[in-house]
Design a binder for these strands. Structure first.
Lengths: 248, 248
DNA sequence: CCAAAAGTGTTAGATCTACACCCATGT
DNA sequence: ACATGGGTGTAGATCTAACACTTTTGG
């Protein structure tokens, strides 16, 4: 009975999606790799399909009158409720055989999607990859459309992924590493205020190498982008660290 | 009379293109920024539209069963006759208003394109930007479809460009500069063999800064990717330089 | 023999790495 | 008092920029 209600709700989604299809660009999608940082681990937000043990990136489609960057922002908002997020387009994935709808077929059947939805997904899709850097603590995942659940995964312990989404995550991670080296991108993964040690752990986790405290702190402060605030009272048996905030 | 023949030939092109349309991905194009190096200047290969003084990048479309990288390679080949070229996808251009067909309308009319061609171009296009690095001396530009002429332009003296193609070139140049800094990409713009001074001039031109001979040579040779060949007899009144070749 | 450009070597300065030392805090 | 982790200073190594000196070649 509960399952039926759920299905009805989902059919509502299909109805909306079916109505939207004529206003979408066909065969072109956006996939967002949403990165977060928690417990000294780099995380990715993924969604699980109904019925099958298969996870996927948060994706969506571009409306006819919409800039692609706006579409990516909208899609991210629809899945996380967040706005004002750091989003970076990084690569297009366009192998001819990058989707195999063997998962989807049974899923579509079970969810009783409309013929228009079936037709929309029948063709090959090319996907524009974006990565998002979010404050883990602010995210409130929303599951929508084909998905029944949304969860964070450690980047090194990914579940079974749909299509080429594992490759997309891998490429996004490479780009993120690269960006960290010469941009000021890391702060987007941090909360408003943070200690130098927390920032260092972020860098070490993403880049996969250790740094010396003294040198890391010097390098960061030399950039003149960190404002030192009051000390944080840790309650631990040692000197309390300063808090920092990212400034323009 | 000659003009009529030309138009007939072009109608042949429209015929072929019209037949091809059902097998193309709609609303998605590829634009290639083709870089070459000649006379100590960085050049871009552009094509001129029929009828109007308006130049454009070499572009094309993706076939349904075709990987996008293969499509870019094919498009490059169709416009230059070259194969085995260094091609790099660098950015997607997807502003909603990035094309205005005000140029095209009169052009389409004059060229008597088919209704199918008109319908194909009626919609908004999103374009995947690639840049190509070619040996200037090997290129034999081919003009096709909408274009009557193809020519090299100095990067700092570009003509009037269609759509957002000036921005695309600008972004491609930024990416190329960035790639030069940490990849071995420059050699693709050189002929098979070259002197150290020629290579230095390439770097100086693209990066827009001067280097000291001694330090530049040291840095390049330290990479262990240059093989020193026999000396080049210049016939000039000074020591003749070594020739180098790029290896693996 | 001279001018011009190529090849090689050397040194001062800047930057990076590693470690040492001191400081604050709770037990 | 002391163990723990945070903050700062510094010597040595490494890398870089700038210049000097030598070599080759045609006139």
């Amino acid at each position: 009975m509960e399952k039926n209600n759920k299905k009805l709700a989902e059919n509502g989604v299909w109805k909306d999606f079916t109505d939207a299809i004529p206003f979408l660009i066909p065969q072109l999608s956006i996939d967002c790799v949403i990165f977060g940082f928690h417990n000294d681990e780099l995380k990715v937000l993924l969604s699980k399909f109904h019925q099958i043990e298969m996870w996927a990136l948060h994706g969506g489609f571009i409306r006819q009158g919409e800039d692609i960057d706006d579409a990516a922002t909208r899609i991210l908002g629809e899945h996380t409720g967040l706005s004002g997020i750091y989003l970076q387009q990084f690569q297009v994935f366009g192998k001819a055989n990058r989707q195999t709808f063997k998962y989807m077929e049974s899923l579509f059947e079970a969810l009783e999607v409309t013929p228009q939805v079936l037709a929309f997904f029948e063709n090959r899709f090319i996907s524009i990859g974006y990565y998002a850097l979010v404050d883990f603590s602010k995210v409130n995942p929303i599951s929508a459309a084909f998905f029944e659940e949304s969860a964070w995964f450690d980047i090194s312990e990914l579940p079974e992924l749909a299509f080429d989404h594992r490759e997309i995550i891998q490429k996004a991670l490479e780009q993120l590493r690269h960006a960290l080296d010469y941009q000021l991108v890391g702060f987007n993964l941090m909360p408003e205020t943070f200690t130098m040690n927390e920032l260092q752990l972020l860098y070490e986790t993403i880049l996969g190498e250790k740094f010396l405290r003294a040198n890391f702190q010097r390098k960061m402060l030399e950039m003149n982008i960190l404002e030192r605030l009051d000390k944080k009272q840790t309650g631990k048996g040692h000197k309390s660290p300063y808090l920092y905030r990212f400034v323009t």
